[in-house]
């Protein structure tokens, strides 16, 4: 029995020796406590912050400047696998952090963040820890935690499976002004919101409002809430600016035509009596000046037939150009100009 155990132990030992070299990964033999006991400070080895504000790990030359004895000059003095030393490249933790900025705030006392609990802190046993998020939040960044300002420290949250958090405040009225955030820091939005999230509202599904897709989310600030379809004539009148930011002038036309609302001026028109009479209070000019987009929603595609017969050069209607108008294109050479102005000789 004993020989069997001995054989098994030997096999296990041999097997462990023959495992791939990746198991014998290189490490640096190092302990902070003896160095501190020798009277060194943190900045004796972790020299000046880099240009990015980070603190560099000590270089090999830095170590050799103290460890000068021949035995200490061997690679194996520090490297556990001197035959295959590992590169100690800087690990990108996707954090926005600067030692250079934090140093003065803690009066140069690295232990403020890297220390251990007071009861267990001794020079002999000290090993500095990498601060975790709780430590940051407890000491200084509690406000950021409460405000969910993740991006104050994290350049990316994609490694975390985090839901229901935001790096910007989604307070009341956020739906109205979120465009500035989306344009300026869209990558931050996608930390939590999938790219198709925008399309849910901005690429409208015809006949299917978001309130229908989310019938249980009755307290959310959807723009097209409730029976918006019934209210949309009034809503568009009051908030033309809001409508046109998302919906182009073509948006309304097709649906209005299919519903029989669009169309030209005539007996079957939806326009009130006196629409074309200059002396009528219902004259179209006032409404056009107040809300041209309501005209464009139906007449955008046939404006040359509806508007220009009267508003063209020499027509009975006045010049439609606003003061200081600039076409921005070469005049008299493009069809949009020549409709009224004719072809340049």
């Amino acid at each position: 029995m004993r020989s069997l155990l001995l054989a098994a132990l030997s096999c296990a030992l041999l097997a462990s020796c023959n495992r791939p070299t990746s198991v014998a990964r290189d490490h640096i033999r190092f302990a902070h406590a003896p160095h501190l006991a020798a009277g060194l400070s943190c900045t004796s080895c972790h020299v000046n912050p880099t240009a990015s504000g980070d603190v560099a790990l000590p270089t090999e030359q830095r170590c050799r400047s103290c460890h000068t004895r021949p035995a200490q000059q061997r690679c194996g003095f520090c490297h556990t696998a001197p035959a295959a030393p590992r590169r100690y490249a800087r690990v990108d933790r996707e954090l926005r952090f600067s030692h250079a900025l934090h140093g003065p705030r803690v009066d140069g006392n690295c232990m403020t963040c890297h220390g251990v609990d007071a009861e267990t802190r001794t020079v002999r046993s000290f090993e500095p820890r990498v601060p975790n998020m709780d430590g940051c939040a407890t000491r200084c960044h509690g406000g950021d935690m409460r405000a969910l300002n993740c991006s104050r420290c994290h350049s990316s949250l994609r490694r975390y499976s985090i839901e229901e958090v935001s790096t910007v405040r989604h307070g009341p009225g956020f739906a109205r002004h979120h465009g500035a955030e989306a344009r300026s820091m869209g990558a931050t939005c996608t930390q939590c919101h999938e790219p198709t999230f925008c399309a849910r509202c901005h690429v409208a599904l015809p006949g299917l409002a978001l309130a229908d897709l989310e019938p249980m989310a009755v307290t959310r600030d959807f723009v097209h809430r409730g029976d918006f379809f019934a209210r949309h004539p009034e809503e568009s009148r009051f908030n033309t600016n809001t409508c046109t930011r998302c919906h182009g002038v073509n948006f309304c036309d097709g649906c209005h035509r299919a519903s029989g609302i669009g169309g030209g001026v005539g007996p079957a028109s939806t326009h009130p009596p006196g629409w074309l009479s200059p002396s009528s209070p219902n004259n179209h000019a006032r409404e056009a000046r107040r809300n041209l987009l309501s005209c464009a929603s139906c007449h955008e595609s046939d404006a040359t037939q509806v508007c220009t017969p009267c508003h063209r050069v020499g027509g009975v209607a006045p010049n439609p150009h606003p003061p200081g108008f600039r076409a921005g294109i070469e005049p008299r050479q493009h069809s949009v100009c020549t409709v009224c102005h004719g072809v340049s000789p």
Binding site: G171, P172, G173, H177, T240, N241, T244, R245, G248, V249, A288, R289, R290, N291, L292, L293, C295, A296, H299, E300, A303, T304, C307, T308, H311, P320, H321, P322, F325, A327, G328, I329, V336, V339, C340
Partner: peptide
């Protein structure tokens, strides 16, 4: 939370230039 803001919009400029309506005056 207190929000204050200002907004400006010229809807005529939202009408693309290929439409003759883009030359009309509006508010």
């Amino acid at each position: 939370e207190l929000d204050v803001g200002y907004g400006h919009l010229d809807p005529a400029l939202l009408i693309p230039r290929w439409s003759i309506l883009s030359v009309f005056v509006t508010r």
